[in-house]
Design a protein around this nucleic acid. Structure first.
Lengths: 243, 243
DNA sequence: CTAACATTGTGTCTTAAATACACATTGTGT
DNA sequence: ACACAATGTGTATTTAAGACACAATGTTAG
């Protein structure tokens, strides 16, 4: 089993000898986290010499006995130890030369994890969180995959209660706003933001206050339990254009 | 080369003997058309005995030397003779048992074609247009693929000028509204619909009138050339939540 | 203890978009 | 010339988006 998304050369040589139908299929996970008011993504040092010094997303080949969703879930579990995680398919990348050592088609997923709650013990083997904004170049076509997934995330956050997977259970409205700002890479007006969130009716007022801030503490909220769906699939776009 | 999306058994037997990485990958095209005020989809009789009498989408295995987009484009071209067609990737379906004779992962695309302009000469070999609303059961997981693609289409039509690929070049606002209604499966208010379309500023007034209707003719429009992009990719969701 | 600081919590006005809704006009067909 | 079927158009109401200011609360430093 390969150590990360890049196939070992030996494996690919084997692959490339096989006949017509032999195209390898992998999954790659864009694992987002949030820390220090920045959107992060979990990357690993590429072990391909072609990509010496570059980082890549976490991925692996899909096994013959697992479906795509399971494969991406497995990658996530193996890499982070996390089990109950938001994960959604985004796009499949199939350019002929996207992998230097052979034909590999990859299906990209994005995941949202609470970076603080699970200090991954896996900080050996060159696995690190990187600020999304600082990323310049990645191995393979992973920069483009990352951008595609980031766009998808941006599209979803106002329509669906997904970002809460990036926060700890209790949070203040300031923290939530800072998270939105980090994802969208813009500033938001505080009053308008609160109004908009209030309308969604996603939050439960815990009647508790922050106690760790050096200023007036804000109220704490949590996501209403009925919205706490990991692995959630988007609903059909129904009333796109109502009568 | 297989005649349609279902793999020939012989081919699959060969495949299943190959080792670890051997998963076949295919593309399936949901080819939408519009006729008689109904949204149609192009289907072919399944040639698998497991699916005796059922229809399936048009698909084929991806060749080692073509990327995914090219493969779906090729299927489209081979099946319809059409060349300049709107085509967009939607989702990849990878359940283990989705194909009865082996492991096949498929990437679904949806296409929009002008059903009238190109009377496909291919009406032999059980290739037919079916009303989307009448479809009950399809081979493989193709019903679910169809639904996913239909949902995607519904999501896109108000944001992006895509439906024009289903109409002939000149059309009246009534025709356009009927098309939207067919896709969304709802009735729309005529004045509000026209207002909404006017705001988009997608249309060019041709200063011509319908001449084939048994009532007062409407004005004819066409899509402004700058929006006539086939094979268009969705833009990034930018100002989801502006200051 | 109090003054400076940082952040919370809240509301109104303006503008834009969504929706509901009605009537005179134009061309066809009998 | 009349019935018919569809076109073309506008206003009033409600809802959402965006711009914007000030008093209240808790912390910290002097």
């Amino acid at each position: 089993m390969p150590k990360n998304s890049s196939l070992k050369t030996a494996e690919l040589e084997k692959i490339s000898h096989l006949d017509y139908f032999n195209i390898a299929i992998s999954v790659d996970c864009v694992i987002f986290g949030y820390d220090n008011k920045e959107l992060k993504v979990l990357l690993i040092k590429s072990d391909l010499e072609e990509f010496e010094g570059l980082y890549s997303l976490l991925g692996d080949l899909v096994r013959p006995d697992e479906d795509l969703d399971s494969a991406s879930y497995r990658v996530l579990r193996e890499r982070t130890g996390l089990d109950d995680v938001f994960l959604e398919q985004v796009h499949t990348f199939g350019s002929i030369n996207r992998h230097p050592s052979g034909r590999v088609i990859t299906t990209a997923y994005y995941a949202l994890v609470d970076i603080k709650h699970h200090k991954l013990k896996l900080n050996h083997n060159d696995l690190h969180w990187h600020s999304v904004n600082d990323i310049r170049k990645l191995a393979f076509d992973h920069k483009s995959i990352l951008e595609t997934c980031l766009n998808r995330l941006r599209e979803q956050i106002m329509e669906h209660p997904v970002v809460f997977n990036l926060l700890s259970e209790k949070f203040s409205l300031r923290e939530l706003q800072e998270l939105y700002q980090a994802i969208l890479d813009t500033d938001l007006d505080r009053r308008n933001f609160r109004k908009k969130i209030a309308i969604k009716d996603w939050l439960l007022d815990l009647n508790e206050m922050e106690d760790d801030v050096p200023h007036r503490p804000g109220k704490l909220y949590k996501l209403k339990p009925e919205f706490r769906k990991k692995n959630q699939r988007r609903k059909a776009g129904s009333s796109v254009l109502a009568g």
